[in-house]
């Protein structure tokens, strides 16, 4: 069975069974391994991607349900040779990254938050990360990085993967 979907702006055709988790299709068929698949149950958040503008756990999305949809992954948050998206840059500047496995999902959740709330407070940032497990950092740097993003600089550039 062939499914067509748009991934990071490109039309892709994949041939997996319709109940295949989107996360596996992204990783194994489209080689977009920035998206991780660390629990498969929607608890860890490492597979979070944007589907038609909503940040969702791609391990729980059946491929057949996203036919015709637009999917955006961490690989499209910044152009390959261009600057990082502000939320990525904030993580880098804050030295937030350790092992790095959680960040693709963390960035998706935070981008969704920043799309909704331009100046989130601490509680909102923590709330946005309820579904993202980070085992390394103890979260504080990630939270601080978001709180410190200068949203006044160039509002047009503020959203990353938000479709």
């Amino acid at each position: 069975m062939t499914t067509e979907l748009t991934v990071n702006g490109n039309l892709r055709r994949v041939h997996n069974p319709p109940m295949t988790p989107l996360a596996r299709v992204l990783r194994e068929d489209l080689h977009l391994t920035g998206t991780k698949l660390a629990c498969g149950e929607g608890f860890c958040g490492s597979c979070t991607v944007f589907v038609d503008g909503d940040a969702k756990a791609s391990c729980l999305i059946a491929l057949g349900t996203v036919a015709g949809s637009s999917v955006r992954t961490v690989e499209s948050m910044a152009s390959p040779r261009g600057p990082l998206a502000p939320v990525q840059q904030a993580m880098k500047d804050m030295d937030a990254v350790q092992c790095g496995m959680c960040f693709p999902g963390v960035l998706a959740s935070l981008t969704a938050l920043l799309d909704e709330v331009s100046h989130p407070d601490r509680q909102q940032v923590e709330g946005a990360l309820v579904g993202n497990i980070c085992r390394c950092t103890g979260y504080e740097r990630i939270v601080q990085a978001v709180l410190g993003i200068d949203r006044t600089a160039n509002p047009a550039d503020q959203t990353g993967a938000g479709a």
């Binding site: 080689h31 391994t33 690989e75 790095g100």
Partner: peptide, 23 residues
């Protein structure tokens, strides 16, 4: 000094290939 990590940007861009990503 607080030098930044050299591996951070690849990890933030989703480029880092962990063993589990290797094919």
């Amino acid at each position: 000094k607080n030098h930044p990590r050299r591996d951070a940007e690849d990890k933030l861009r989703g480029r880092t290939m962990f063993t589990v990503d290797t094919d």
